[in-house]
Design a protein around this nucleic acid. Structure first.
Lengths: 216, 216
DNA sequence: ACCTGAACACCGTTCAAGT
DNA sequence: ACCTGAACACCGTTCAAGT
């Protein structure tokens, strides 16, 4: 990766890393995955990268800024998962349900990362525009899919933004309950995920008696 | 409150407080409300109560145990709000919607407290049975109401527990998005809350076109 | 420009000691 | 039983100094 130093040039490669910022982000995320946000320590990240404890401050304003950057990358990845599910599913009603399932699956598979994204340890107003933009991008994937289904006459023609927020709240709520251990076991998580796929579109009242899950 | 010391008895009232545990809980909650969990410091609680920084350890194992106790009280209060909405609303479909609204309102009015209850800084398995019991109690209020509506033929006769978890996830999701500032303004929060009341029961697909909110 | 090393203010927690 | 005071190990952050 690094340029090979020519004869006349000093071999002045950067102190330790070609891209320390990248390394800091990766190491922070690895620690968050392995031990949770609470155990994340700037000092340990530094020593783990073979760098001073304060080198980080050349790339991030403070710890919160580092966490905001981690969250930003999380929203980018989430959007990719959502768009993939929508496109590969065929951009229809089933694809929309697959999108919801993909959302929940992402949250569970990356629970610590997801908690940083939504944990409230970072507030969107303070942490620069990148985080807000990336979060809005992930949300936009949902809005676009929903808007498409509305034009196709599959989803109610309510205000698109409000409907999208509702869908977001539902999958977010399921994800949080699953992550927080408030659902007793994996079976109940799967069950709730499937149930959500069904009920989100048709509601929980009677009058749609046919297509539902059995009383189980 | 304290017994008046009789003549022959030493006026041996406790060092500073009749109930230090109570004082610690109240002070912790007050700080959480005013400044958020991150700013909560055991030392400041102590000095604020005019007590040693380590007196707390006579009443709580550590900081996490204190937070767990705060969360426990939160679930108790939440349950009271839910049951009040259900009973005062007349135990019918409208009362159930009022229960959902009461849930979201509680979360928003006590956002920092709510975050402690669901923030994941405390895991239910470790923190003793009281927290789990009180959380289960709040959930049970929802299960009971739902079960009643199922018997009345108002809500689909699906598995009650799964349905209750779904409803919980929905109101929890709306609450979290509102608390985290991911909804742009109070108007959108109200709008989403109303929309949730409607759509939770009837779903978002077409075929129920009449009773919905207009597209504005 | 980028990184270091020492220092500062702060924190949760422990523990022998007091009453 | 309940509380204190000093101490320990740890943390985020600052800043003058190095290359």
């Amino acid at each position: 990766m690094a340029k090979i130093a020519g004869k006349g040039r000093k071999p002045r490669r950067p102190y330790h890393h070609g891209n320390l910022r990248r390394g800091l982000l990766d190491e922070a995320l690895a620690t968050i995955r392995a031990e949770g946000v609470d155990r994340l320590t700037l000092r340990e990240i530094g020593t783990r990268l073979g760098v001073s404890r304060t080198a980080l401050y050349r790339h991030f304003a403070d710890k919160r800024a580092l966490l905001a950057a981690v969250a930003t990358e999380g929203f980018r990845t989430l959007r990719q998962h959502l768009e993939a599910a929508w496109v590969e599913g065929g951009r229809n009603r089933e694809a929309f349900e697959a999108m919801g399932t993909a959302y929940i699956r992402f949250a569970i598979a990356n629970s610590s990362h997801y908690r940083v994204m939504f944990g409230g340890s970072i507030d969107p107003k303070v942490c620069g525009p990148e985080l807000a933009a990336e979060a809005a991008g992930a949300f936009q994937a949902l809005v676009d899919a929903l808007s498409s289904l509305q034009r196709a006459g599959i989803v109610r023609a309510d205000d698109t933004l409000t409907t999208a927020r509702y869908v977001w709240a539902v999958v977010h709520g399921v994800s949080m309950l699953a992550i927080n251990g408030q659902l007793p076991d994996p079976v109940s998580i799967d069950g709730l995920t499937r149930y959500t796929s069904d009920r989100l579109l048709t509601g929980i009242d009677v009058g749609r008696a046919l297509s539902g899950a059995p009383r189980g």
